[in-house]
Design a protein around this nucleic acid. Structure first.
Lengths: 254, 254
DNA sequence: CGACTAATTGAGCCCACTCAACACTTGTGG
DNA sequence: CCACAAGTGTTGAGTGGGCTCAATTAGTCG
């Protein structure tokens, strides 16, 4: 039911076998949702929690002029509305970007789980704090990185996050996100997003084909984007095979 | 010691007199810090928590090219590093923007306080969730609002946040933040920040003089910025005298 | 008063936007 | 299985918001 979540929690927080078993036995219902469907609407206050099991989703807001701003990407293992009741109502919406399987768990069940297993509560809290760090990093990107570096940075982030849940190899992952959805997450226009991607491809920083992203030289992409995994708070022991590559010259555009 | 914090917690969460007394009796030391000084450095892992008692501070990151990105403004009542130990080390730094008084409390004392008073722990958690919502709103601003609207929005947000801790009237507050610090928080250049402020003044949306901000017509500014307090999760009963004003025509630039 | 910091102004440029057309994919129903 | 529609990606041309560089004018504070 919650397998990618368990994987994610286990990476940043020590869980006992007892905790794991409890997590594995959580019951809820699995729902399959098509691409570009709302999972949670703004203003909602539901009595269940939604987790992404497969596919990509996003948090977003619609502005008065109809523009959409994507505030976060959600990948398998991410919760959509974990602490929503503490705040009362959702101040933003959540929608799928691709076809998704989501797990819907009752808040009551989850509450019992976390009170019986305080370390699960802590682990969930930690992963929320990481989400917060990710928001901050997006702010850094939007504020002070060029469009090219911003998107490169995002692609690095997704690689790391997908590796955590076993959905990426050391240098590639499935990337079914639309350029329009990338644009709304980067604060760019669709046209410019397209051109930025072309530049990254032309520089040989990424190979993007058939909804699949391959990174020929991760060190080079990291150096270009100014990417530093610190903010994701992954354990140092985590295996990052790509880190073993030779260091290469930094890339400069123009 | 923590009076603005107590005010802030009390607004969004019901605290018993018992809780309040406990909060009032927290001890720690008060430190006075000059403007533009680091309070917490990136990578730090300290055994105490720092709260802003007076003045403005910010969270920030420095990029490889030396640029600074301000990720959040901190006002009196805000915590600098509440959950830092859960994540291990700080992934960003905190610095003052003006002269500040900060309260430094040992984590051990705070831990005892929250385990004796679970509702204080919840209240702190809620205010962290609001900080998260603020980050998301900043992302919306940077991504999809014009420079004018972005800064107008920020000024609306500060009004609301300062009202919570009694540092703003219904339509004005002390605004000692430098244009350079505003620029780094908005992702704009200093020069353009200056011009944006001039536009807002020329439109009569704000009066900014002698480090003091006055908003002649809050509804007008709200409408212009597309500002909606929802994301701050203030109680509906909160007194917002300015809301009683007449509705006025929306402002359009150019 | 002098030294520094902060705010302002001008000029020229470029990154990113808009509008608009076109090509390629994907999916669906006849 | 094809035809068409819708969605997605790509390209060109022209514009403008926001940038940089550089200099000047306030403020602030010892």
């Amino acid at each position: 039911m919650l397998s990618p979540l368990i994987q994610k929690l286990g990476i940043r927080f020590r869980l006992s076998d007892h905790d794991r078993t409890a997590l594995q036995q959580v019951n809820g219902r699995i729902v399959s949702v098509g691409a570009h469907q709302d999972l949670i609407e703004e203003g909602e206050a539901s009595d269940h929690v939604t987790f992404i099991r497969s596919g990509f989703a996003c948090r977003y807001r619609i502005l008065p002029d109809g523009e959409r701003a994507i505030i976060a990407y959600l990948v398998p293992g991410d919760a959509c509305d974990l602490y929503a009741p503490l705040l009362g109502r959702m101040d933003h919406a959540v929608a799928t970007l691709t076809r998704c399987d989501v797990a819907v768990v009752s808040r009551q069940d989850l509450g019992m789980l976390t009170s019986d297993h305080p370390s699960i509560a802590d682990a969930l809290h930690v992963s929320d704090l990481v989400d917060e760090a990710i928001s901050r990093e997006w702010l850094v990107s939007m504020g002070r990185r060029s469009a090219e570096k911003q998107i490169a940075h995002l692609l690095c982030e997704l690689l790391a996050r997908l590796q955590v849940v076993g959905l990426a190899t050391s240098d590639s992952y499935e990337f079914p996100i639309t350029q329009a959805d990338l644009a709304d997450a980067s604060g760019l226009s669709v046209v410019h997003t397209n051109r930025v991607l072309q530049t990254l491809r032309a520089e040989g920083l990424v190979v993007l084909r058939h909804k699949n992203l391959f990174i020929p030289n991760l060190n080079r992409l990291h150096a270009f984007a100014g990417f530093d995994t610190n903010y994701l708070h992954l354990p140092p022991t985590s295996n990052h095979p790509a880190r073993m590559q030779f260091k290469s010259d930094p890339v400069r555009l123009q």
